[in-house]
Design a protein around this nucleic acid. Structure first.
Lengths: 200, 200
DNA sequence: CTTCATCTGAAGGTAACCACCATTTCGCCG
DNA sequence: CGGCGAAATGGTGGTTACCTTCAGATGAAG
């Protein structure tokens, strides 16, 4: 019984591996949220997850990696590139945000909000986010350049992407004041405002 | 250290203190740029700056603080609030950026560019910037709210500030490709584009 | 049963950071 | 101008936590 071409034949080993990884990450994130990032030692994490220190570092080469859950960038980009050609770049971005985040299951939405709130609340974790942010800018910039037929280093492209990402961050920061906020709706509204030239 | 000893101008002690602080910071930033943040030990910094470890930690409670050069936020805010009332928020922000950064001396401009390039180039340092960024968003948000007579947590205000800060970051990231870029001009252009609704 | 990947436990390295005290340097005032 | 109190600096030793390495146990796969 060997479905050789089916990667879903995972085997017990693979499943255990994934489970261990997830276990460590869950406990890590929980402890980070409860006590702060710096205040949480890997010792506490491995105690909670019941693995050895060696195992921890085999899965996460550094403590900070526990937070780096690779995100929605690829989904966002493909959604963006699939938007109808009539739209402006901003409109297309707005639509792909709506599509991507609107299509999430309740569980996924909750998990995302959980993680966002954690990142927004704990200063040390906000730091870890910036690298991901600049990478997001890079990726989005390439997509926008491709769609509009401009060079990827076009200042106008960069400005647009910077504004969009900045707005997205600003929306996430709302969680700081109001943890129950509906991020998808807020983001959509903000993008509309961006498009209208931010008249205030 | 054999400097021509200036008689008490504003207190020799104060000036020495400032000088030591600046010395440590200069060497720290240089080493960070040359070798990366993590790869640079405070031992190397204090060797280069010729101070003791105690002194280092007396000036900078943590290694990361070496990068946190207190910035232009207050100048920016007061300039913003002093703009003529006819302008929209974005126009006023644009003008205050132009005023603030255009008025810098050559030395200051060079220093700022140096620091920006460092922060943009070294991934570990970009992280340290984010806290400052969110604090900037906070401060700018309050100023914009005050000027427009809106509550500080108005979503529209947040969106505007998010976009502006995002654009500023995007402009800084240009240094990654082109270290000779004129940031002030680029920023001004980008702000104009923001105001026009980012049509692409 | 054999093989091979994974987990563990222990032991150690390194570097940030701190507490404490000796030493030097500066401000000031008699 | 000379010396005294305060402040800044230097050095020493120590703690903590991230991270590495490796020999050996465990359990899955064939």
């Amino acid at each position: 019984m060997s479905e050789a071409s089916d990667p879903q034949t995972t085997g017990l080993r693979e499943r255990k591996k994934a489970r261990t990884r997830q276990l460590i990450q869950e406990h890590g994130l929980r402890l980070f949220r409860e006590q702060g990032y710096e205040a949480t030692t890997v010792q506490q994490i491995i105690d909670a997850a019941e693995v050895s220190e060696s195992t921890f570092f085999r899965y996460f080469p550094t403590k900070a990696e526990v937070v780096l859950v690779d995100d929605f960038d690829p989904i966002l980009v493909s959604s963006f590139l699939a938007q109808p050609p009539g739209l402006t770049a901003i409109q297309a971005l707005r639509a792909s945000f709506r599509d991507t985040f609107g299509a999430l299951s309740d569980d996924e939405t909750a998990a995302m909000k959980e993680r966002n709130e954690l990142v927004v609340t704990v200063p040390e974790l906000r730091a870890a986010m910036l690298d991901q942010l600049s990478s997001t800018m890079q990726v989005l910039g390439e997509a926008v350049a491709q769609r509009t037929g401009r060079p990827p280093n076009d200042p106008a492209v960069r400005t647009l992407v910077g504004a969009v990402v900045g707005v997205a961050v600003a929306v996430e920061l709302v969680l700081f004041d109001d943890p129950t906020a509906d991020l998808v709706a807020l983001l959509d509204e903000a993008m509309g405002q961006l498009e209208a030239g931010l008249r205030l």
